[in-house]
Simulated assay, not measured.
Amino acid sequence: MSRLIKYHKTLTIMLVVTFLSLMNTSNIKPRDIFSFPHFDKIVHFLMYFTMAFFLMFEYYLHHKHRITHIVQILIIPLFWGAAMELAQLILTENRAAEWWDMLANSLGVIAAYFVVYIFRRNKIITYLILFPFNKKQPIA
């Protein structure tokens, strides 16, 4: 139960991603949202970028400000993306599993890793914005 509380942002994002992945989209017309090709791949990228970013951030906050085992943690959103593609194939009638969606999901996770890595290397961003709870790090 404590893990559910600790990771409430990540779990909320995972629930939203699951809902969006499995919802019936037959009533949504592409021209109603945006009318450029492959917009859905951008959405996939952003959903999984956000999920991985919050997962890494919450892991950092709840594990004594360490960023160890981050690569192992990123397996969670990668598997979640694969599971959602399989669920679309098996559980829905109007959605299909696509390799390109899985690629967009994976690229979002990888991009989130590099953003967190860059933020951790920048002392000003690390101290003031991304990881303000770590008082051991000086600004300089």
Rank of each mutant, 00 (worst) to 15 (best):
L4N: 12
I5D: 02
K6I: 05
Y7H: 14
H8K: 12
H8W: 11
H8P: 01
H8G: 03
T10M: 09
T12V: 11
I13F: 09
M14T: 08
M14S: 15
V16L: 07
V16I: 12
T18G: 04
L20H: 11
L20D: 10
S21C: 09
L22G: 04
L22K: 07
N24D: 15
N24H: 15
T25S: 11
I28W: 06
P30D: 07
D32G: 03
F36G: 04
F36Y: 13
P37L: 03
P37H: 03
D40L: 04
H44M: 00
Y48W: 04
T50G: 14
M51E: 14
A52E: 02
A52W: 03
M56C: 13
F57H: 15
E58P: 12
E58W: 12
Y60D: 04
R66T: 09
R66W: 01
T68N: 09
H69W: 11
H69T: 04
I70M: 09
Q72P: 03
I75L: 09
L78I: 09
G81K: 01
M84Q: 03
Q88M: 15
L89P: 02
I90Y: 10
I90F: 08
T92D: 11
N94M: 15
N94I: 13
R95S: 08
A96C: 10
W99R: 06
M102R: 02
A104F: 00
V109I: 10
A112M: 01
A112H: 00
Y113F: 12
F114T: 03
F114C: 04
V116C: 08
R121D: 10
K123F: 11
I124T: 10
I125V: 14
I125Y: 12
T126G: 09
Y127V: 08
L128M: 07
I129W: 07
I129Y: 03
L130T: 10
F131P: 01
P132C: 11
N134G: 00
N134P: 02
K135P: 02
K136G: 08
I139F: 06
A140L: 13
